[in-house]
Computed example of a mutant assay.
Amino acid sequence: MSTPHRTVDVGGATPYTIHIGPGLISQGEALAAHVRGRHVLLVSDSTVAPLYAGAVREALHAARPELAIGTFILPAGEASKTLSHFGHAVDAFATLGATRDACVFALGGGVVGDLAGFAAACWMRGVDCVQLPTTLLSMVDSSVGGKTAVDIPQGKNLVGAFHPPRAVFADTDALRSLPPRELRAGLAEVIKYGAIRDPLFFQWLEAERETLLAGDASALAQAIARSCEHKAEIVERDPLERGERALLNLGHTFGHAIETEQGYGSPDNDNLNHGEAVAVGMVLAARLSAALGLADAADGARLTRLLADYGLPTAIPAGLDPAALLARMRLDKKNLAGRLRLVLWRGIGRAEVVPDVDEAAVLAVLAP
C-alpha cells in the first residue's frame, strides 16, 4: 500500500507548506515552483549528496533547463556547523553570482538545514530557502520554523537568524537509507511533542514502538505529520520564540550543554548526537520538575521508560562534570538577566517555561 502525500500549512506573516511523502525530491515542477530567479545553490553534506543531490539537480533542470545550479558540500556531522563553513557557503553564493532572487535548497539533516538557512538569511540580506530534510530529526524539527544557526565552541546555535523557508519537502523515501541510530535520534524529537502537549500522541508512540523502529513508512509519515502540526501551530503564534515556542525546547538546554561539553557528535565518534542528547535532557528536565514539586515522578519514569524502549540513552555520559554542564547552560538563549529559565513540565503533555530556576537544584540533577 502506497503512503499518501500529506501537507501541513504554517501560517503567520510568512506562510509556507510542509509536504510529506515519498518521491518528493524528484518532483522537479513542485521544487522549481519556489525558484523566483535563475540561480540555485544546492547545499548538502558528504553523506547525503552522493545519494540524492543528483536527483535534485536533474529534477530542477528538467523543470527549468535555464537554471544555474551551484553545489556546496559540507563534511557530514555537527562539527561542520561552524562559522568557517558558513563562510565557505557564502563564497559559494559569490562564485555562483547569485542575485537577490536566488534560492537555496538545503538537502540533508539538521546541520545542513541550519547552516544553509543561515547562509540564505545573510546573502544579500536574505534570499529564498527550500528545506529538503533527509533525516527524521530534521523533518520533525529543524526544517520547520525558520530557526537557522551555526555553533561556536562556547555553545550550540549561538550565532543565527530567523529565516522561514519558502517550502519544506520531507521525502519519506530518504528515511530508508537512514542508519538505525539516526532514526532513533529523530524519534526522540517525535516523543518530545507528546511530552510537551499531546498525551494521546505520547500513548500512540508507546503502542507503535515496534512499527516505528521497523521503519514502517505509513507510521513514520503519521508521526512526522503530527509532529509538524504541533510545531506549525506553535510557530504560527510565536515565530520569534518570545513565549510559547520555547516549549519546543524541552530537554534542549540540558542536551545542548552535553553536546557542547562533549565537543559535538559526528559519525566518527561515540559522543551523543542531537536527538540522543535531547533524550537525556528530557529525562533530566522531568527529574528536575519532580524535585521542584511541579510534577509526579511517575510521569518522569514513564518518559524514561519510553525513551529507553526506543533505544535512546537516558543518563548523562560518564566523565562529564556537572559544574561544567551548568556553566554551558548559563549561555542558553532562553535565560534572562543571568538567571536560568528552563522548559520543565507538570506531567506528560503539560510543559511550561519556568523562570529563575535554582542552580543548586539543577546541579543536584546533573550529579552522577
Rank of each mutant, 00 (worst) to 15 (best):
P4Y: 14
P4S: 13
T7Q: 14
D9K: 06
V10N: 05
G11K: 08
T14Q: 11
L24N: 10
Q27N: 07
G28P: 06
G28K: 11
A30R: 10
L31V: 04
L31T: 02
A32P: 08
V35I: 13
R38K: 12
R38C: 05
V40L: 12
V40R: 09
V40T: 10
P50M: 15
Y52D: 09
A53D: 03
A55C: 05
V56Q: 12
E58Q: 15
L60M: 07
A62C: 04
A63I: 03
T71L: 14
L74R: 01
P75F: 01
A79T: 09
A79E: 13
T82V: 09
L83S: 05
S84L: 08
S84T: 10
G87M: 05
G87A: 13
V90C: 05
F93K: 00
T95K: 11
L96W: 13
D101Y: 03
L107P: 06
V111I: 11
L115T: 05
G117K: 06
C122V: 13
M124R: 15
R125L: 14
V127L: 08
V130M: 04
P133L: 08
M139N: 03
S143H: 13
G146A: 06
A149N: 03
N157P: 07
P164H: 07
A167H: 06
V168A: 04
V168P: 13
A170C: 14
A174T: 14
L175T: 11
S177T: 14
P179K: 07
R181V: 15
E182L: 13
E182R: 01
G186D: 10
A188H: 03
V190Y: 10
I191A: 11
Y193D: 04
L200W: 07
L200N: 15
L200P: 01
E206N: 08
R209Q: 12
T211I: 09
A217R: 11
A217K: 10
S218R: 15
L220W: 00
Q222W: 06
A225P: 04
A225Q: 14
E229F: 12
H230M: 08
K231L: 06
A232G: 07
A232V: 07
E236Q: 14
R237L: 10
P239W: 04
E241V: 03
R242M: 15
R242V: 13
R245G: 07
A246K: 03
N249K: 11
N249W: 10
H252N: 02
F254S: 00
H256Y: 05
E261T: 09
E261M: 05
E261R: 01
Q262K: 00
Q262V: 02
Q262S: 09
Y264P: 12
G265S: 06
P267A: 01
D268T: 06
N269P: 02
D270W: 00
N273C: 06
N273R: 06
H274L: 03
A277K: 03
V280P: 00
G281W: 00
M282W: 02
L284W: 00
L284T: 00
A286C: 12
L288C: 03
L294M: 14
A297E: 10
D299A: 11
D299W: 12
G300H: 12
R302N: 04
R305T: 15
L306F: 05
P313L: 08
P313M: 11
T314N: 08
L320I: 08
L320F: 05
L320W: 02
D321Y: 00
R330M: 02
K334C: 09
L336C: 15
G338R: 01
R339F: 06
R350E: 15
V353W: 07
V354K: 11
D356P: 07
V365T: 11
